[in-house]
Design a protein around this nucleic acid. Structure first.
Lengths: 129, 129
DNA sequence: CCTTGACCTTCCAGTCACGGGAACCCTTAT
DNA sequence: ATAAGGGTTCCCGTGACTGGAAGGTCAAGG
């Protein structure tokens, strides 16, 4: 199975798969012609990585999660700590974005949006503390 | 007024101020010794930029907003379009993060977080569609 | 006058997680 | 034999800075 087909199966671009090999997240074998030879375990890891990335985990987190995934003697507590920290970061980012949204929404609502130059949005950006 | 004091007044690091000059957002004058000479208008622009950035506008957006801010014959409609688009992007990012949060939260809740290796979080990352 | 320390300057490298594109090799079909 | 469509490596660019090195400037103290 060549890289493009693997890419389709796991839902990651070929470039990303090569990059993941570069940084040591996967270590596929090689065929005689130099092409990568992906084992089922490589496919599983890639799919795992794809799902973790889609949940917003950083590459560093993914590396740690993958190590836990591979380690049959892991403690689920270790996984839960990682995931909980990430969950907290997501919550913070949501709160920050909601604050931005509220402030900007306020400004936008009060802007006439016509041909006149007077604009509460620019006023807000220029003058508020 | 030297760059550090300006930085404190407008709430941006000196490095960022130099960077903003680099990319042409501000054009402070120079003193005889080569130090930057900031006019009040430079301070206003920097404060404006700081607030726009804190609302999540990209540098490209900030450049456009600054141009509108400087243009006395602008139409507030142009500002409103920019701000509304950004608002929509913020909303999308919030939705994405909330989806991640919901999924991950589900996984975390079902994880015992003890010394045993069995972990629903890893199961979820490994097996779900 | 000299030095010290705290400024300022420019420039280069690194961040994060890839994506684009060049230059070249391999396989398959015509 | 060649053309199309894989694959490979390698290098550069992204956004918005941040850190750090090398060197110029300034005010105060001995």
């Amino acid at each position: 199975m060549n890289i493009t087909e693997v890419a389709e199966q796991v839902g990651l671009p070929p470039k990303t798969i090569r990059y993941y090999e570069d940084i040591g997240l996967i270590r596929p074998l090689r065929q005689a012609n130099g092409y990568r030879a992906f084992r089922p375990s490589d496919l599983h890891k890639l799919a795992f990585l794809g799902r973790a990335r889609r949940l917003g985990f950083s590459i560093a987190d993914c590396r740690a999660l993958l190590a836990l995934y591979e380690d049959q003697s892991r403690a689920s507590a270790d996984v839960k700590v990682l995931a909980s920290q990430h969950l907290a970061e997501i919550a913070i980012r949501i709160a920050e974005l909601e604050a931005m949204h509220a402030t900007l929404s306020d400004l936008v609502v009060h802007c006439a949006g016509d041909q006149r130059p007077d604009c509460p949005i620019l006023h807000g950006l220029a003058e508020k503390p």
